[in-house]
């Protein structure tokens, strides 16, 4: 074990999979030797694997995904980077109508082993076009899988699994996570898609959180225990497939649930998780489902404005107290 960052963990996953399978290659804007990825995730890969396997592209999001899809259906395993998740809008047809649907439309004749990595999320004051959390859009598209790693360990293990998966996987990397550190094994390991991780066990309330909100929820749980409230923090780790069982089991134990996500509240990830709880565990609830999410605005620029709309420890603690008392 050694301590590495989320960024390093992702890079290790890419490197190990590129060494393991020569059909794996990376493409995207400025991923190559000159810029090394907007968040430096691909640093060193072009030098090691050559420019063709770490392919810089024109600023053409639609074609990045289209080209990756065309390569995926003809024997390659591309890992495409969309520099900011917000820009997936430019590639939406290729993601949602092409990559996601080709296998189905063609009656199972093909597979689309494609990973789309997307730095995303708020917190660095770059406003409405570079800060959104769009996971919910993609969980609504059958054919896509959606990974949302919150830690270096999970990021590495999930990215390796995503690259080996024969379906298109949307891989969300919150930009505030890149520099967090954790002990990660040197030895080979993977993390399966569809298995949640209980990041902290507790008895009084279940907090389901994703991505950067896992860390805020863990900080909130630390504060809550001082006040006598024991919170269980669950990180689904992937939204498609979603490990409903772990969430439902926890709710049956605690009788209370707070869902914490950074995306917009309406039609968001938290709405889907709420629906799962309503369908499968409503009889076990001692309080209404509570959601802490972005209040349906674009992400504003000015620091106090941005801080106001993004969930934080205080908002989580407030929500937990509402359901516990």
């Amino acid at each position: 074990m050694r301590e590495i960052t989320y960024r390093d963990a992702l890079r290790e996953a890419l490197r190990e999979e590129m060494l393991r399978d020569e059909t794996v290659f990376v493409l995207g804007e400025d991923v190559g030797r000159y810029w090394k990825g907007a968040f430096k995730v691909t640093k060193g890969l072009a030098e090691e694997f050559g420019d063709e396997r770490v392919q810089d592209t024109p600023i053409s999001e639609s074609a990045i995904i289209g080209v990756a899809t065309g390569a995926a259906i003809t024997g390659m395993r591309p890992v495409a980077e969309i520099m900011f998740g917000d820009l997936s809008t430019l590639a939406m047809d290729q993601i949602a109508n092409q990559a996601a649907k080709l296998r189905y439309m063609f009656g199972g004749q093909t597979k689309v082993p494609l990973v789309i990595r997307m730095p995303f999320g708020a917190g660095v004051n770059i406003a409405a076009h570079h800060s959104q959390s769009l996971e919910a859009w993609f969980i609504h598209v059958p054919g896509l899988k959606v990974a949302v790693p919150s830690t270096p360990y999970d990021a590495k293990g999930l990215l390796k699994t995503a690259i080996r998966d024969d379906n298109p996987v949307m891989f969300f990397e919150h930009k505030l996570l890149y520099s967090i550190k954790e002990l990660v094994p040197k030895e080979e390991y993977t993390v399966p898609l569809g298995v949640a991780d209980v990041k902290r066990e507790g008895e009084d309330v279940t907090i389901v959180a994703t991505l950067y909100m896992v860390h805020k929820s863990l900080a909130a749980a630390e504060e809550l225990i001082k006040q006598g409230i024991s919170a269980e923090v669950i990180d689904p780790r992937t939204l498609v497939p979603l490990d409903k069982e772990t969430i439902v089991k926890s709710v049956k134990k605690t009788g209370r649930i707070v869902i914490v996500t950074e995306d917009c509240k309406t039609g968001g990830v938290s709405a889907e998780i709420s629906a799962v709880v309503a369908e499968e565990a409503i009889d076990y609830l001692d309080a209404p489902v509570k959601r802490v999410a972005e209040p349906d605005t674009p992400i504003p620029f000015s620091p106090p404005l941005e801080k106001f709309v993004i969930p934080d420890e205080n908002k989580i603690i407030g929500a937990v107290k509402e359901v516990v008392h």
Binding site: G70, T74, M76
Partner: peptide
């Protein structure tokens, strides 16, 4: 059936040929 969507996909098959 999305008009124009095939062009990048064809280019991707071409890239795959190059890489293979």
């Amino acid at each position: 059936a999305v008009v124009g969507a095939g062009l990048p996909i064809a280019a991707g098959a071409g890239l795959s040929i190059r890489l293979r």
